[in-house]
Design a protein around this nucleic acid. Structure first.
Lengths: 368, 368
DNA sequence: GTGAAAGCGCTAACAA
DNA sequence: TTGTTAGCGCTTTCAC
């Protein structure tokens, strides 16, 4: 053990402590030696195999308890190729993936599986191919199956069952995503219903997730259904960093015939749009209505009044686990591509368009 | 590969697919055989060891790429006792732990470690001792160190460095928690400042986390500092299920000389308190002020107007990782018990006490 | 009923 | 420069 001394200053505990003494792991050998039996006998006891005398079982059990022995998950999974562990692979734990994880954790209960989340956590540069690398390194050993929360799911087949959440197009693996197309439609329909006719789209960066084009399609489809020809000038691409979205929003809003509403295919860019609008002297929703596609439930906290299209992230995580468990049980999935509904949540950022859309002063648009 | 057929009905993709063909794992043996070298040579190439001819290195590398080989984390960690993986052990992934995880994921970046989260996910019954069991099964292999997000941290020493978040009292291991005492003080001081004199405490169930008593102490301390003797009648214990908190809140509010403000040592019970108050015909904050101790950032969404004491959960997760990394580097911690500040976030649920506290009708109190 | 031996995929001595 | 060998902690034949 280690000894320590603590003092408290200003409500902060300061404790000085000697380095903790290291105790090495108790292995099956230790148990065998102490019980006076062979390793294989201990193994049999551990796994409830037949052919061990009751008295021996008792003795071994006693020693196991005495030593506090627990078998090594690693050694065991190297031998057996079953681990009863499901892995969820995420690039990072941020609000989006955290939400999925909550659902996954809920779904795993009672399945007999345990949940392990792997977060890559490296720099952006190493990102390429990490999902494949991780899956390779873990599958066959350590995890029985995986849920991949990652854009690029390698189509290369694995021995391990895999379910992908919100991946790129065309992946061969079973998939869970949300209805981006319908979500975008809902957003635009809502704006149309309020009387808007010039509706801008702040879309995602090119070559992004599959959901990007889907949202754009929904936007176009809703406009066309209302007899409006989409104006290419009203569609701009945002980016992953704030400044790209900011530029795009500014371009839209300083157009001579600017949109009276903007649908941002991403919650962060929706918030950016509101900021830009305010900086340009426009009021939301008086002069401009904004709807964001929600990736992050907390965005409603950041911008309490933002009307959003919400994805059922927890449910997506839950369904992914359920599907994987089916797969692991050797059953066929009734549907390999599950698409969950999105819904419109109306908050304060939308209103009818102004009778006479106020133009933004040119000075403003140049300023920055 | 597998062949599949998809149809779309009502925006849901239904895909029927034959069972995927299984491919077995590529091992170091496969690589060695294909490259015409021994396994150990491949291992040397993998680990950039000296003493391999450049031509051989190239050939092996080519085969590795060709076969898409990745070394098994499990086999490797059984051999080496270093894995460069930090484990975070949580009982479940819910809003509280998810928040900690976000901070942990942020902190791990750039440390060279990878993050693995283990969620126990079993039934409540198996809960006893799971932290010890998991740690046993993982330490020495698979993870180099662990952050335990769990009430009962076994004081039994492990070979593996461990940092505990918000544990029971008296744990020997390094610890991160938040300043529950000061937080409770802040809450009560705020209520006193508004003019309240009869302030109830809805405290945690007995034998709960260490933070329970700490919050109760803060409550008493703030009252006493204001010259008020804590009235034992104004202190009731909630429970983990809603109904226990509901009963406690009802008892407090139907007291002949009921409190004009309640400090709930937990966010869920604060929301319950507001519900009960409203059911009893009391308005918040007109007739009753409520402050909750926040475990879950989202509670502000559920009850947007709730004044809370907030814990820096993400920061706690971050600090825990930082401490663990220090420990793993073999350095001593400047402080083994880190206590992070809590802060008061004022929202609409508090106001000055009514001049004449309205009594709750007895019929009401009996009803249920 | 029990234990010796082989091997899961890998690394690190040591020989060749 | 390369391959052989032993062994990480465990399970599983298969003799005894």
């Amino acid at each position: 053990m280690s000894r320590s001394v603590s003092i408290v200053i200003d409500n902060v505990f300061y404790t000085l402590q000697s380095a903790p003494v290291s105790y090495s792991r108790v292995t099956i050998h230790d148990v065998a030696a102490r019980a006076g039996v062979s390793v294989s006998t201990v193994s049999k006891v551990l796994n409830d195999r037949y052919g061990v005398a009751t008295s021996t079982v008792d003795r071994v059990r006693a020693v196991i308890a005495e030593l506090g022995y627990e078998s090594s998950l690693v050694a065991r999974s190297l031998r057996n190729h079953r681990t009863n562990v499901i892995g969820v692979l995420v690039w990072d734990i941020e609000p989006y993936s955290a939400e999925l994880l909550k659902g996954a954790a809920r779904a795993i209960k009672g399945t007999g599986y345990e949940l392990v989340v792997y977060a890559a956590g490296g720099k952006g540069a190493e990102r390429m191919g990490w999902e494949h690398r991780y899956l390779s390194r873990l599958s066959g050993t350590l995890i029985d199956g995986a849920v991949m929360v990652t854009p690029t799911v390698d189509t290369a087949p694995f021995s391990t069952p895999v379910v992908a959440v919100d991946p790129h197009t065309g992946s061969e693996v079973p998939t869970v995503d949300s209805d981006n197309f319908r979500g975008a439609q809902l957003a635009v329909e809502h704006l149309l219903g309020l009387g808007h006719r010039r509706i801008g789209l702040l879309r995602r960066p090119p070559r992004d997730l599959e959901s990007g084009p889907q949202r754009e399609e929904g936007y176009r489809s809703a406009l066309q259904a209302a007899g409006i020809t989409p104006d290419p000038d009203l569609v701009r691409a945002g980016g992953y960093d704030d400044s790209a979205s900011e530029d795009a929003a500014r371009q839209l809003l300083t157009l001579p015939d600017r949109p009276t509403a903007i649908f941002a295919a991403n919650d962060v860019s929706a918030i950016t749009t509101i900021d830009v609008a305010m900086a340009l002297g426009l009021r939301v929703p008086g002069d401009l209505s904004v709807i964001g596609f929600d990736n992050v439930p907390e965005s409603a906290m950041t911008e309490p009044g933002l009307t959003t299209i919400e994805q059922p992230l927890q449910l997506m995580g839950q369904r992914a686990i359920e599907m994987l468990v089916e797969l692991l049980a050797g059953r066929d999935l009734p549907q390999t591509h599950v698409r969950l509904p999105t819904r419109l949540v109306v908050r304060g950022s939308c209103a009818a368009p102004p009778a006479e859309p106020r133009r933004v002063a040119v000075e403003h648009s140049a300023a920055r």
